[in-house]
């Protein structure tokens, strides 16, 4: 399974989202590869992804995709991440 953590520049915020999503997945006992990417890399990265994690501000930049788009408000809130990933992957 593959999950994308998406941000505008591909460093910083997406990397924090990746770190915290990995912690949420560990809570759920789910194995997945999480890839941090920027807008330029999103289309290729998302081809075989099941879930795209993004901020509310960035959803409009995500083009047509078969992946579930999961909006994360607080990138540091493991409860929010765990709850939303559980729904998306359940």
């Amino acid at each position: 399974m593959k999950i994308i953590a998406f941000c505008g520049a591909g460093i910083g915020t997406s990397a924090i989202l990746k770190v915290n999503a990995e912690r949420a997945l560990a809570r759920l006992g789910i194995q997945a590869d999480i890839e941090a990417t920027d807008i330029a890399g999103l289309a290729v990265a998302a081809e075989d992804a099941q879930v795209i994690l993004a901020s509310p501000e960035l959803v409009k930049f995500i083009g047509k995709t078969y992946a579930d788009v999961v909006v994360i408000e607080n990138y540091f809130d493991l409860d929010e991440l765990t709850r939303k990933l559980e729904i998306a992957l359940g």
Partner: peptide, 23 residues
């Protein structure tokens, strides 16, 4: 410019912004 282009997504948690740009 990152914020002008992509919006205020750098505000990643309540009260906290992580400003950044590419290398």
């Amino acid at each position: 410019q990152v914020v002008e282009e992509f919006g205020a997504y750098i505000v990643i948690a309540p009260g906290l912004a992580l400003a950044h740009a590419r290398p």
